[in-house]
Design a protein around this nucleic acid. Structure first.
Length: 572
RNA sequence: CGGGGCAUGGCGCAGUCUGGUAGCGCACCUGCUUUGGGAGCAGGGUGUCGGGGGUUCGAAUCCCUCUGCCCCGACCA
């Protein structure tokens, strides 16, 4: 297409309210414009990217045997009341009334609608398994939309829902979706990882998130350097240390530690490594009172794990300082496991320490040479800390590394939560009505655009993976308006490229070269051809890939074939 | 929802404290020159200073109020 026929409003300056790089670049490259908080208009170039992603998703879902449907964005309240989510979902569900004062909501997800469809239309086990998907705009009234389309209120999502007679069938489809997602993200040209996810309160046996790896990602991911184990840091199990606890070596002693309230200060003050200290956190117990959690000094409490411990209030709440003083007799910063009257839970790593340092439960004092069993009760080791880089991988293979990711996909074994609530049954071989077992599978299509940019850009702009670039080749003539000869050649080449099935953006603007080159780089077009009178004299055209450092002059006559070869051989 | 901040031309901002009739850069339009990395000169247009109310001879500026937006915390594709 011709540049002058498209609205591509590039910006030189960074818009003031764009915080992260993908948001800035999407605005600067003219992909999107904001309409309201968390709501965006997709301009021609941005829409081309969105459509490319959508098509790859569609192809792979179809290949996996899923059927495409399209459900309404406006949903009647009755269905949501049936699943109890009308009351459970909270303000994120945007509710509205029609002219008859009937309640509706904007669909943030479509379990209810698809379950309603299936219970009406599917009668027999012979129609199962079935997997329905749609690519459609969702609306979630996020508390705080930010980062452009990364966390928008309205966003494009591929959501799929599968129905099964048996758990085995669900497992099969779940695994097929896992493979399908792997194919999709590979084809999109992204570096990604499937990670174990918290199934949350929805329950269900299996759930994995797909994350695009990027330093700017919001989620911390731990992965093994020797296997494909990966998990959210919140989810990753910290294994018990393999080495046994050493025998006590020194007697317990009291030291004065005025104004020492942190592990860091303690470590410096007593000149002991943080790994040889222990910190004690007092949290609210489930049924009144408090409970102590003990961690190695250099470790961080994992609130998700801790909240799951029996006796601990969920969600986790740190005890009020006044309550701590009442139970322990000192301030936060001087607490220790020796002589505590409340129940104590000890992290696995803290439980194998000997001769450690901890608070004395008296302001301004700490204990040294403390040992479990001798100075305080033998601990019951639990896993309540975040894993750290270098921990052994929970699957027993390799050690953990850390990275950051952007969640772009989620696959989930739902079970019968919705089919039970909404009485979605079908008849089995014996003519009995059974609740169908469900799975659901989401991909954040619009978020993928931002994620791809977060993962792939430089100081000049976006660097699109070829599969989702709005155009594959940019055609840039130097002062075409001055040279009729050049204009004719460029027009002819433009025709040849299009005829060769290449998506080409022809920069026919009457701009200086520098302006055109800067824009093309900002837009992130993978391949660029510059044509000039000078090159014409030599029969060459200048080629440069978006990631290339150097330009090269190539014969004009064979340039289309050259590009076709180059595009075909590019990593998918 | 709590805490902080912003709202002045298409974009980025100054002007607000100390009231006197709106300005800079970029962009845009016209002409000439220029043309291998965001050109130069000349000319031009662009604003209900977020809305409403008040104080005042006079309000972008002071006061009240409403709205929108951004940033920091708990959720999610």
């Amino acid at each position: 297409m011709r540049f002058t026929k498209l609205l591509i409003p590039t910006l030189r300056e960074v818009p003031a309210d764009a915080e992260i790089i993908s948001h800035q670049l999407m605005l600067r490259a003219g992909l999107i414009r904001k309409l309201a908080a968390g709501i965006y208009t997709w301009l021609p170039l941005g829409l081309r990217v969105l459509r490319k992603i959508e098509n790859i998703v569609r192809e792979e879902m179809n290949r996996a045997g899923a059927q495409e449907v399209l459900m309404s964005g406006v949903l009647p309240a009755e269905l949501w009341q049936e699943s109890s989510r009308w009351d459970q979902y909270g303000p994120e569900l945007l509710r509205l009334k029609d002219r008859h004062e009937r309640d509706f909501c904007l669909g943030p997800t479509h379990e209810e609608v698809i379950t309603d469809l299936v219970r009406r239309e599917i009668r027999s086990y012979k129609q199962l398994p079935a997997n329905f998907y749609q690519i459609q705009m969702k609306f979630r009234d996020e508390i705080r939309p930010r980062f452009g389309v990364m966390r928008a209120r309205e966003f494009l999502m591929k959501d799929a829902y599968s129905f099964h007679l048996t758990q085995e069938s669900l497992t099969d489809t779940y695994q097929e979706m896992h493979q399908t997602y792997t194919r999709i993200f590979s084809r999109l040209g992204l570096r990604f990882r499937a990670v174990l996810a918290d199934t949350g309160n929805i329950g269900g046996s299996g759930s994995q998130e797909f994350h695009v790896l990027a330093e700017t990602g919001e989620d911390r991911i731990a992965y093994s350097d020797a296997s494909d184990y990966a998990a959210n840091v919140e989810m990753a199990e910290a294994l018990a240390p393999a080495r046994p606890r050493p025998a006590p070596g020194i007697p317990m002693g009291v030291v004065n530690t005025p104004d020492v309230h942190t592990i860091e200060a303690l470590s410096v003050f007593l000149n002991v490594p943080a790994e040889q200290t222990v910190k004690t956190l007092i949290v609210d117990a489930a049924e009144g009172g408090v409970l102590a959690l003990v961690l190695r000094g250099d470790h961080e409490l994992n609130a998700v794990k801790a909240a799951k411990l029996a006796g601990v209030a969920s969600p986790l709440r740190m005890a009020d300082p006044a309550v701590i003083r009442q139970h322990v007799g000192c301030d936060v910063g001087s607490i220790g496991p020796v002589g505590l009257k409340c129940p104590v839970r000890v992290d696995r790593a803290a439980a194998v320490l000997a001769d450690f340092v901890c608070g004395a439960n008296e302001d301004g004092k700490h204990l040294t040479g403390v040992n479990w069993g001798r100075d305080c009760p033998e601990p019951l080791p639990v896993d309540i800390r975040n894993v750290v880089e270098g921990d052994p991988s929970p699957d027993g293979k390799g050690t953990l590394r850390m990275t950051r990711g952007i969640e772009v996909g989620h696959i989930f074994q739902l079970g019968t939560k919705y089919s039970k609530a909404m009485k979605a049954t079908c008849l089995d071989e014996k003519g009995r009505a059974v609740e169908m077992i469900m799975g659901c599978y989401g991909i954040g299509v619009s978020r993928l655009v931002a994620a791809a940019i977060e993962q792939s850009h430089d100081e000049r702009g976006i660097i699109w993976p070829e599969a989702i670039a709005p155009f594959t080749v940019a055609l840039v003539p130097v002062s075409m308006q001055k040279s009729e000869r050049l204009r004719l050649v460029v027009e002819e080449l433009y025709g040849r490229l299009c005829a060769g099935g290449i998506e080409v953006l022809f920069d026919d603007r009457q701009e200086r070269l520098g302006v055109m080159l800067n824009d093309i780089e900002l837009l992130g077009i993978p391949h660029r051809l510059v044509l000039s009178d000078r090159g014409l004299d030599a029969g060459t055209v200048e080629y440069q890939g978006r990631r290339d450092i150097a330009r090269q002059d190539l014969p004009l006559v064979s340039i289309v074939e050259y590009l076709q070869g180059r595009i075909a051989s590019a990593p998918a």
